[in-house]
Amino acid sequence: MKQLRRIALYAGLTIAAITFIYPFLWMASATFKPAAEAGSLALIPHDITLDNYRTMWARAPFGRALVNSTFVATTITLAVLVFGSMTAYAMARLNFRGRPALNAATIAVLMVPGQLTLIPLYTLIVQLGWIDTYAALIVPYLFNATAILMLRQFFLQIPQSLIDSARMDGMSEPRILFTIFWPLSKPVLSIVAIFTFMGAWNEVLWPLLVVREQNLMTLPQLLTVFALGGGAGTVGVSLASAMVLVVPVVIAYMFLQRNFIESMAGSGIKG
């Protein structure tokens, strides 16, 4: 009886896992199949072809989009880590005028749904003349309230005597942050880095609003435009373009899955 229930449990889990993994495997294999074979359920193609990738690469600037996405997501992540931890350090450990107000404002901002500010932000970008610039994609994300609150929470737990010692040793406050706090905050920094990078990497609505020039598009945006514009034509080409976006993420996920899960689940709960 007990044996039977264990078998049922593993069978159920296996079916569930297949449901989550199989579509991606099928997607990967479909990109290597010729058009005639595209719809088949089999994972191993009869004839392996790279035509889908050649077509996709030739029809739209996916290489450029990959560079754009990498640049934008990396810049945002670095900014959120550096600026965010400076802000969080000040909010957690320094007394300055307006600190309570800043704390309250940060929490309030998190309560407002993004759709409320979407249009005013868009008109702001238009008025700044930032349409079709990297600035439009990067500047509104330089600070992240969720990241600041997470970092602040972590910084609050570091003993005061470390700050005191560092001050006695003659360090400036930024130096204390980057040489004492950062090495001690690796777990939370990696959490913030992952969810920030993933958020920036996968974001699609904002780029759709502020970028029209193909050469400036990020990957998910170009992918969407490509699929909707009929540029893809076939299933294989359409999925091949999606692979450019997915492969780097899946590779990173395979190596850092524990950090990914902790990070994305953690940020969702806080946010």
């Binding site: 896992a17 991606f24 996968n202 699609v204 999606a242 997915v246 993420v249 996920y253 990914f260 994305m264």
Partner: peptide
């Protein structure tokens, strides 16, 4: 395995 689709872009999932 269960978490995998969470890390994939919504645009990709929609196309797939």
């Amino acid at each position: 395995a269960f978490f995998l689709p969470v890390v994939i872009s919504g645009a990709v999932v929609a196309i797939l």
